[in-house]
Design a protein around this nucleic acid. Sequence first.
DNA 1: GCAATACTCAACCGCATGGTTGAACAAGAG
DNA 2: CTCTTGTTCAACCATGCGGTTGAGTATTGC
Lengths: 109, 109
Amino acid sequence: MVEQELDTTFHALADPTRRGMLASLALGEKSIGELAQPFAISFAGASKHVKVLEGAGLIARRKVGRMQLCRLRPEPLARADLWLRQWETFWTVRLDRLEALIEAEKSRS
Amino acid sequence: MVEQELDTTFHALADPTRRGMLASLALGEKSIGELAQPFAISFAGASKHVKVLEGAGLIARRKVGRMQLCRLRPEPLARADLWLRQWETFWTVRLDRLEALIEAEKSRS
DNA sequence: GCAATACTCAACCGCATGGTTGAACAAGAG
DNA sequence: CTCTTGTTCAACCATGCGGTTGAGTATTGC
């Protein structure tokens, strides 16, 4: 179950248009038209991207008059980040090793 | 560009088989056969997944005799994590708000 | 040399993706 | 009521994905 959420979350994040939309939503609620505007894309195309983001639980919508306002839902991002941090020790160890090498190089000169 | 690296990294992570392979590699170098074994998958199929991971810079290979040993390269994971943490304030604010509500509820009772 | 092992490569399949266009619908503006 | 705006839906297209099979290439063991 968690596995499947990671699938959809990472897949949603694997597209630059969708990441751009999220960045745009970080500044506040936006209609789908406003989300589509910066990307040379058709309205229907944007609508599809929004549906992917919604399917991944990354955004929620509410209808206001004739437009749909989208807002960010960061929970899946938090869970994806949690998963990525499993490897944190892995890459920090590497960086530590690198720093140690740099220090060794310094003291040699 | 950084954007494109995020594309390939997130796409590589969006598949449970590939995430499993990474987890397996966290325990040490593995041949492609060893990587394929836990997943009911053909040899060629595993080879493709490995190629995707390699293309994303998440693993490196070296030839030892007739087998290919793969090892984890965590750098792209670190960069993906960095990107995700852009939203960290976003979700922690939410959690803070939730805690505040819980506290408010407690003191009301 | 010969057989087995550890792969890679090319071709194919079914299905999803990202994109389009054009028609439809719902709601506010005149 | 009509026109425009904001959006969805359905159909289509080209491309790519995850998977397979079958053939081909190194390398090791006998």
